[in-house]
């Protein structure tokens, strides 16, 4: 997980508004079902957990299995309580953790 994840949210939102948030990260999402040409199993390495917090409180999370496509994309909704910072965390089987923080502008 070297590339910077991409987060898409409205440039500004009103308090109480329900906004869509989209998040995309580059990851192989290796299923563990495949073998090398020599017949050696390729170990599973997927992002198994995705979490979103707003000002420290979890507002959305997802558990993912090998059935999620490579470079996982997720779209979900959020009712804007006011200004604050969203924090996105992806954790994979290798223990690698990617964290991205995005301020939410409120008009």
């Amino acid at each position: 997980m070297t590339a910077k994840p991409r987060i898409k949210l409205p440039e500004s939102a009103a308090p109480g508004e329900i906004i869509e948030i989209k998040a995309l990260i580059q990851h192989v999402m290796e299923t563990g079902n495949r073998k090398t040409p020599e017949g050696q199993p390729i170990p599973r390495n997927i992002i198994h957990t995705f979490t979103v917090t707003f000002e420290g409180a979890t507002v959305f999370s997802a558990d993912w299995g090998p059935g999620i496509a490579a470079n996982p994309f997720v779209g979900f909704f959020f009712r804007v309580p006011g200004p604050g910072t969203l924090e996105f965390t992806w954790i994979d089987d290798a223990g690698e953790r990617t964290v991205e923080r995005t301020p939410l502008a409120v008009s």
């Binding site: 299995g65 994309f73 909704f77």
Partner: peptide, 19 residues
């Protein structure tokens, strides 16, 4: 996948891509 929502979600609506 299992998507865990909260009242803060506002809408029960999720998107993604699967195999």
């Amino acid at each position: 996948a299992a998507f865990h929502l909260t009242p803060a979600s506002g809408k029960a609506h999720v998107k993604g891509r699967m195999r």
